[in-house]
């Protein structure tokens, strides 16, 4: 790193072959003035020996390319480029209820309704940055509740296997899932729940 500070610290001398890196002087509150030791790295040397600076063009481009204004992007342009344009300031701040959080995570494909009836994290399809620990904690709570419900349902239907209970429960659950939620199909692939328009 070139440290702004004392003037005339760094002097470059080109070399034909790979140059040696010396330690740069340290900038202190009171400037020290080392001898005119040459400091170079291979790329800087190459840049100076084998390319044309075109100073005027460079300056002109800098003048034209720098601006005191923001970049006039629209939300559509940002989203088309795969970025996040930011939400409208409509939602109350602070922690959301678990189910609202889950709906949002399902739609953003960060979490999915797995074939076995539990919720799982799906980082490979996630479209938004998130806190894996918090999401993990949320899923743990929700899945624990689901397991308790399944055991309860199994007790209500003696002779039914837990697997059958989970399957039946999941079928009903998916019907009430938020539109656009990520769901695992019977082939194991992740898809999105479409709702009729």
């Amino acid at each position: 790193m070139m440290v702004p500070g004392c003037a005339s610290l760094v002097r470059l001398r080109a070399a034909a072959g790979p140059a040696v890196l010396w330690l740069a002087s340290v900038v202190t509150g009171a400037c020290i003035r080392p001898p005119p030791v040459i400091i170079a790295d291979r790329h800087t040397v190459l840049e100076q020996q084998a390319s044309v600076p075109f100073d005027q063009l460079q300056q002109d481009l800098q003048r034209a390319g720098l601006s005191p204004a923001p970049v006039p992007l629209t939300r559509g342009q940002v989203e088309a480029a795969g970025g996040e344009a930011g939400a409208l300031p409509l939602q109350p701040e602070g922690p959301e209820p678990d189910d609202v959080q889950l709906d949002r995570l399902l739609v953003r494909r960060c979490v999915g309704e797995a074939l076995d009836g539990t919720l799982v994290q799906t980082p490979q399809t996630c479209t938004t940055p998130l806190d894996p620990q918090r999401v993990g904690s949320l899923l743990e709570r929700t899945n624990r509740n689901r397991w308790q419900v399944w055991h309860f349902l199994q007790q209500q239907r003696p002779g039914t296997s837990l697997q059958e209970v989970r399957k039946a429960w999941r079928q009903v659950h998916l019907e009430g899932l938020v539109c656009g939620a990520q769901v695992q199909g019977s082939d194991g692939r992740w898809g999105v729940r479409e709702c009729a328009r």
Binding site: G65, S67, V71, Q77, A81
Partner: peptide, 8 residues
């Protein structure tokens, strides 16, 4: 992010 100005 997208660019709107070619020089930039």
């Amino acid at each position: 992010l997208p660019f709107s100005d070619p020089q930039a």
